[in-house]
Write a protein that binds this DNA or RNA. Sequence first.
DNA 1: TTGTAAGCGTTATCAA
DNA 2: TTGATAACGCTTACAA
Lengths: 343, 343
Amino acid sequence: MLNTPSAPTILDVAARAGVSKSVVSRVLRGEYGVAVATRDKVRAAAQELGYVVNSVAQSMVTNRTRTIGVFVRDAAAPFYSQLLTSLQEQAAIRGYGVVTATGAGRFAGPDENTAIARLVSLRVEGLVVSSGLLPSELIAQYASRIPIVLAGRPEQNPTFSSIYCDENVGGASMADHIAALGHTRVAVLSLARETSIPQFMRSEAMIRRLGDLNIETLRLSAEEYSEARIAGAPAVVSQMLKHPEYTALLTPSDRWAIAVLENMRSRNLTAPGHLSVTGYDGIWPFTTDLIGLTTWRQPVGEIGVLAINSIADQIEGALSHPIHQSLNGELIVGRTGGPPPVR
Amino acid sequence: MLNTPSAPTILDVAARAGVSKSVVSRVLRGEYGVAVATRDKVRAAAQELGYVVNSVAQSMVTNRTRTIGVFVRDAAAPFYSQLLTSLQEQAAIRGYGVVTATGAGRFAGPDENTAIARLVSLRVEGLVVSSGLLPSELIAQYASRIPIVLAGRPEQNPTFSSIYCDENVGGASMADHIAALGHTRVAVLSLARETSIPQFMRSEAMIRRLGDLNIETLRLSAEEYSEARIAGAPAVVSQMLKHPEYTALLTPSDRWAIAVLENMRSRNLTAPGHLSVTGYDGIWPFTTDLIGLTTWRQPVGEIGVLAINSIADQIEGALSHPIHQSLNGELIVGRTGGPPPVR
DNA sequence: TTGTAAGCGTTATCAA
DNA sequence: TTGATAACGCTTACAA
């Protein structure tokens, strides 16, 4: 704004209280060694002026910002938005604020790099990166400077930490579940690796396990770069209709499963009556009993908590090396997966 | 971290390039008046050192942070989390970053004040406040310093802006809809004003309109302070069962409607077979056709865009006074609301 | 218990 | 085209 009255500084408070700025600084930070009378005078002056400390100047000298940077690729995706909430909460508990940056684009590109560089330039004390795509070299580039944790993607890079839910276990469990229901021909939607590494990994894990179980597998593919609005579902369902011998469709995200189910509904197809459909992530509210989605739950809240803790521990010196933690997920048995239809 | 190699400064770059820091500053900001050879030398040096500008120091002298602060009361609530995403995106478009703070507690209390003060101390250039509770005097207190917009709550305070969706129109429309379906006895869940001002307002608007239409109205109440996990639904449904002559239940949020529907499902009750249920907010994914919720859609994306624009315009001097904008919502006719059951 | 003064990493002004 | 030098608002020795 052009003519905003500039905020009062420590000097204004000092002048008003009739003391030096050092005293004000000490009072405001609650340090000892200040006469009670002086202390009260200063506090009153600060109050009257509506003084709020300038953290920018403060950081300048203390070299601390008490801020953690969070980069998520697609804030509109349910998994990320829920992670964001969890990170937020835990950061507050540990006494840190959160600055968020998001990638916009379709590919991990210069934008992503700029966004991360911006966080670093803000002198965040740690970085939580959650992107299914961002190249690990790019992340590693900042790792010598501040602690970094990659949340939600397995990556055993020694220079930064990672917290994730094992994609192989999840994918295989889902395959086991669908096999146990009696399906012998199963389709798996597998997105390109360039779309999302973890989603690619889980689909491949499903396909691998189905192969081990001697189940005939159909690999479907689709391109989709934002989880928020999935457009490819009609095409996927059409594919399935061309291969009616395949009685189940395993998708790599709840969002995909819902889009498929919505499209099926518009064609008067039901799950599992016509086709069993499963999701992945187990994110509320997709797990509502009203929908009854069969899915694999990733402990997103826990991922957030552990991510912040590992960062905070490193900042505070309680942890000196990057750690890699794999968490357990959980199969959620809903009503969209069932025995194959009798034909 | 204890022994992090401290980040290279402009001085390190200057030394390496064999020039003064002033030249480095000019080169890095792309200013004219630097010899091409010098420019290249400096850029190379910066690159080699992995130099990243210190925005903290930069802000110190420019007195700009290009950052907008966002305060939401409950980041886990679908409405807020979606708003957050929209704010984020639009801020990026306008060239600003976003720092988020969230209130934790049950009441608007000192926590909230601290959180806002923290944002102000970070020298954000504007503030988006989205809380159904935060007293407007508290907000106004900072309004002389930076532009503020209250998002999602009607409040005609002259010192700051507001962008919201008219609660009276929304509540009345929902009442009209349920009346048109033929209900003559309708229950409305009305939360205490202390829980959420907008939710209170819309419920009261429903009750008022139902009264105008000579419909017998039953006011139910419940306490609930976080939208994320609603615990009061079983009690509400039990209340309804005690008053079977009431054939519809209007709730003040999608979250509440879903919780009620889930509980009904567990009791083998259907909507609208046994009871018509409506939500409010119209937030995806609650609006999925799989659930078919009847609700009132608030244009949350638009609220976010307009909120950021009004802040950015004020920061940039394109707008000199706070503005108050009321947006239109939209009735979403789903399948959870229908004609009253024939008994 | 209080005050003085140096310095954090930049930008910006003014000379050279 | 470049380089000194003074801010910016605060913390932090150190001196009084």
